[in-house]
Write a protein that binds this DNA or RNA. Structure first.
Length: 476
RNA sequence: GGUGCCGUACCCAAGUGGCCUAAGGGAGAGGUCUGCAAAACCUUUAUUCACCGGUUCGAAUCCGGUCGGCACCUCCA
């Protein structure tokens, strides 16, 4: 399986070649834990999970690091901002440490509900203050920094490659277009490596440092933790597109400035989920969380299916209609799979285990190959999903083959299709006897009783379908 | 001002120059089945890819332009 991925560095799709033959070093920008993740944030994590699953399918061992940023960051980049963690803490009446823990737990709950694979390591920024300070010391020794107004800055003018990722022209950058210019900066795009408390008396999280008591700048943790857990050079770094211009651009400057080596070989960025009112954000008042979807009666996997229906590099508009369509589509996919399974008479384990490619019929094998090709071509999940549906619609494919291909492909889709089949394997005795009772009633043409029993089963989450071959039941 | 993305059926959406007289899903319509219901299944819905030029034997796909939508350049996936 030859992987091709879109690299933001070159704005083109490149063949993926890892540094080590069998292993991939993957760093994903994680959450800042001062509030709930919204479904826009979650789109990026589902994309990263897709990437990870495809890498593993291609045979790589993935060392996947995702940071938890539990240090507050300013509300904006000017020096008079307030720490987001403090705002969150004040609003909820908790300490900043409690806030961080609370929202980290909430984050991983959503993460799991979407069936994302947990990272190998999820390091916390507050646990890496020393590493960040060491990084500053290194940069200082190499002449990339200066101090002004109590803060330590990175001087972008000293890093000749600055802005290459974002294709920024330094002459064209609009200084202070939308933000206050920090008087202390030599260049408006210089950024803070270390804040001291000289200007922030209310900062709740502070640490001693060679530059005074304070806290780290917000780009620093990713560089420091990536280097600590993955080494000086990594294969892939990913995050949302909004990070290209500032966050990742600055991360590159400080990382490569410190090591003198090329830091990241492939940059992958997920496009945004867009609300009808524009970008989602707390301040815009258009924030939707996974809990919102669940409260509206959706399964988190309906949202995952919705996301899989669009390529990660295209903006996706959120709409309740579209989510409802995804739910219906996921249901019908499960139904097709259940039917295929039922026609084989095989156990679920037989179908999961025996998916050796060369034992499949030609059509099924061709479909599986095409699905893998789609995954390998810059993670084209929507195409792969279409191919899977087309194969399931193809009446000439042996049902056992169809089920095997579906379950195999689902190791990448992550829709828990195996679990859906297993749920059908057994029915509690009381419900089973109700079904038998209803069958007798129907034989006796006592349709009133039969309908009453059907309603009871429905209430218990079991749907009854009377077909030409008898009655079958399905879990709702 | 800079940097990108996008415009494909009623809606979402894939499309890696010829297998595209364009996947897949949703919704709609008609039908089969059925005590009823539900589900399922079948049929059906773009000779066309915003528009105009160009390159090519050949373009939805490449190039240029026009119109329209969106995002980033503020912490923000």
């Amino acid at each position: 399986m030859d992987l091709h991925l879109h690299n933001t560095l070159t704005r083109s799709i490149e063949r993926f070649v890892p540094i080590e033959e069998d292993e991939v070093r993957l760093y994903c920008c994680g959450p800042t834990v001062y509030n709930y993740a919204h479904i826009g944030n979650l789109r990026t994590y589902v994309f990263e999970d897709l990437l990870r699953r495809v890498l593993e399918r291609a045979g790589y061992r993935v060392n996947h690091v995702m940071n938890i940023t539990d240090v507050g960051h300013l509300t904006d980049d000017s020096d008079d901002g307030e720490d987001k963690m403090i705002i969150g803490a004040r609003e909820r009446g908790m300490s900043v440490w409690e806030i961080a823990e609370f929202f980290t737990d909430a984050f991983f709950r959503d993460f799991d509900l979407l069936n994302n694979t947990r990272p190998t390591v999820a390091p916390r920024a507050t646990g890496h203050i020393q590493e960040m300070q060491d990084l500053i010391t290194t940069l200082e020794a190499k002449g990339y920094t200066y101090q002004a107004g109590g803060n330590v800055y990175f001087e972008i003018g000293k890093f000749s490659e600055y802005g290459r990722l974002a294709l920024l022209d330094r002459q064209q950058l609009m200084a202070g277009a939308r933000i206050e210019v920090d008087e202390g900066k030599r260049n408006p795009h210089d950024f803070v490596l270390w804040f001291t408390n000289s200007k922030f008396e209310h900062q709740a999280m502070q640490w001693d440092s060679p530059w005074g008591r304070g806290y780290p700048g917000w780009h620093l943790e990713c560089s420091a933790m990536s280097m600590k857990h993955l080494g000086d050079r990594i294969d892939i770094h990913c995050g949302g597109v909004d990070h290209v211009n500032v966050h990742h651009t600055n991360e590159i400057a400080q990382s490569e400035g410190a090591t003198g080596k090329k830091w990241v070989n492939y940059w992958l960025h997920a496009e945004f989920l867009i609300m009808p009112s524009g970008r989602m954000g707390k301040s815009k008042g258009n924030m939707v969380t996974l809990s919102t979807l669940v409260d509206e009666g959706y399964d988190p996997l309906d949202y995952r299916y919705f996301l899989l229906g669009a390529h990660y590099r295209t903006q996706l508009s959120f709409a309740w209609d579209a989510l409802a369509a995804a739910r219906a589509a996921r249901k019908s996919l499960i139904r097709q799979l259940q039917d295929a399974h039922a026609r084989t008479g095989l156990s679920v384990d037989d179908l999961v285990g025996g998916s050796a490619r060369d034992q499949l019929g030609a059509t099924a094998r061709g479909a599986l190959d095409a699905i893998d090709d789609a995954f390998a071509h810059d993670l084209n999940a929507p195409k792969a999903l279409g191919l899977l549906r087309a194969m399931l619609n193809d009446g000439t494919v042996d049902p056992a083959d169809a089920a095997r291909v579906a379950l195999d492909a689902d190791r990448v889709f992550g829709l828990r299709l195996v679990d859906e089949l297993r749920r059908d394997d057994e029915l509690p005795d009381d419900l089973a006897s109700l079904i038998r009772e209803r069958e007798r009633a129907r034989r006796d043409r006592d349709y009133a009783s039969a309908d009453r029993i059907r309603d009871r089963l429905q209430a218990a989450g079991v749907r009854i379908e009377d077909g030409p071959d008898g009655t079958v039941w399905k879990r709702e």
